[in-house]
Amino acid sequence: MQEQPERQPERGPEQGPEHQPEGCPEQPERPERPANPQPATTARAARPPRTGAYDVLAGLGRTDPRMTLSAADCAALEELAGLWLARGATEVQVVHALTAGLPPQVHHPAALARTRLTAKLPPETAPVPVAARPALRVLECTVCRDPGHPEALPGGICGKCRGEAPPERAPAGLSPAEVRARVLLLRAAARTPDVRTPEETRP
């Protein structure tokens, strides 16, 4: 008898990531998300508010077009102009110092503005001294402890303890009732007709 070769088991279609069943659409791979996603946009640092010195420099071009400054020029000269305002100069004075007596043509307005702000810088103003109020001194009598001014307590003793007579007081004025009574009398006298005898009226 002839020996028959052994039959090998039939293998099915290979399954793997590269072999997909026919008729199934390929699925796109999903990108992996990072563990800590970063925000798409970062918050921009807020610009500090504009100062009065910056506004004065930015408005020079409206006063005289020859002194028109750029934003970078205004930022570079802002500290110098602010020093003028800190020393008591007004905005009108700063504008006048930078625009008065200009040449017919200004080729470098920022350089000219820096030169004028430095050369014409006003001096520091001295603080105005505040008049000191005299201290109110009140003493006490060493005997009766009554308060009083120093001139009324010579030797620290009041006039009452020294045996002095109290000062005479000015007479008090009329009371409100007495004032009203006198007003009524004056009004009545003004309304009474002037009656004279024939002898009094005879020249």
Results as ranks from 00 to 15, higher is better:
Ala165Trp: 06
Leu98Pro: 12
Leu186Ile: 02
Ala181Trp: 06
Gly156Trp: 13
Glu6Gly: 08
His107Glu: 15
Thr115Val: 14
Leu57Lys: 10
Arg169Gln: 11
Ala131Cys: 11
Leu80Trp: 14
Gln38Arg: 04
Val56Asn: 02
Glu199Gly: 11
Pro129Trp: 09
Val106His: 08
Pro49Tyr: 03
Pro37Ala: 01
Ala45Arg: 13
Gly101Glu: 08
Leu174Lys: 02
Glu140Thr: 14
Pro176Arg: 09
Gln105Tyr: 01
Arg87Tyr: 10
His107Thr: 13
Thr118Cys: 02
Ala100Val: 12
Thr41Pro: 03
Gly52Leu: 05
Gly12Lys: 03
Ala170Leu: 02
Arg7His: 14
Ala172Arg: 08
Pro37Leu: 05
Glu168Met: 13
Arg33Tyr: 07
Thr197Val: 15
Gly82Phe: 13
Tyr54Phe: 15
Arg30Gln: 00
Pro122Gln: 01
Thr68Ala: 09
Arg33Ile: 07
Ala111Asn: 10
Val94Ile: 15
Pro31Ile: 08
Glu79Pro: 12
Arg180Ala: 11
Ala111Phe: 08
Pro109Ile: 01
Leu60Gly: 03
Glu29Met: 02
Glu164Trp: 03
Arg11Ile: 11
Glu168Ser: 09
Ala132Gly: 04
Arg7Thr: 13
Ala40Gly: 13
Glu79Ile: 12
Pro109Asp: 00
Arg169Trp: 11
Arg196Pro: 00
Glu151Leu: 15
His149Tyr: 13
Arg114Ala: 09
Arg196Thr: 08
Arg162Leu: 12
Glu124Gly: 09
Pro127Ala: 10
Ala165Pro: 03
Arg169Leu: 10
Gly155Arg: 00
Asn36Tyr: 15
Arg187Val: 09
Val143Trp: 08
Ala72Thr: 10
Tyr54Asp: 04
Gly173Phe: 04
Leu184Phe: 12
Pro109Gln: 02
Gly16Glu: 04
Arg50Cys: 06
Pro171Lys: 12
Arg162Thr: 06
Ala40Arg: 05
Glu22Gly: 00
Thr90Glu: 04
Pro176Thr: 03
Ala170Glu: 15
Asp146Val: 11
Gly156Ser: 05
Leu98Met: 03
